[in-house]
């Protein structure tokens, strides 16, 4: 599939940027004319991925979050959320619903939401180097035919 359009966004791992990132990506995805539900699925998944960077990748430090989004020829939205944080030792475990390394009020549902709301979720991670989460969703949209 060829890329029609792409964008990059780099933000600091401040929690106030969670809404900025998800709104920016969904505004970019809006050019495919997705349904309201598809757009909020993308928004929610991006919010989870970015929150993971802030909460887990950079727990006590400020770091950069690199967001890339692309529109593919088959109406797919691809979003990659990458950090240079602590990395995940056991990705399979981290992706299990309700698994969380943090006490308090993290529900442990971030990856479960991403997997349920997007068509595919790929995670690459190296301890001490960082994590990249790639999300894809094909949008039904209202194509001109």
């Amino acid at each position: 599939m060829k890329i029609i359009n792409e964008m990059r966004l780099e933000v600091e791992s401040r929690s106030v940027n969670e809404s900025f990132a998800r709104v920016t990506v969904s505004a970019f995805a809006a050019q495919l004319d997705p349904t309201v539900e598809e757009l909020s699925d993308i928004k929610t998944a991006v919010s989870e991925a970015v929150t993971n960077c802030i909460v887990h990748a950079y727990p006590n430090v400020m770091g950069k979050i690199y967001i890339y989004a692309a529109i593919l020829t088959d109406n797919t939205v691809r979003v990659r959320v990458r950090d240079r944080g602590c990395g995940i030792a056991n990705v399979a475990q981290a992706m299990e619903p309700l698994f969380t390394t943090l006490a308090g009020e993290r529900a442990g549902l971030g990856f479960a939401v991403m997997e349920s709301f997007m068509d595919s979720v790929k995670v690459r991670s190296r301890v001490g180097r960082g994590t990249a989460v790639t999300l894809e969703k094909k949008v039904s949209g209202k194509t001109d035919g």
């Binding site: 909020s40 928004k43 009020e105 993290r106 529900a107 549902l109 939401v113």
Partner: peptide, 13 residues
């Protein structure tokens, strides 16, 4: 207007 899994934590708590 929007809620992610942090809201689930809020409800569970």
């Amino acid at each position: 207007s929007f809620m992610d899994s942090s809201g689930v934590g809020l409800v569970m708590g």
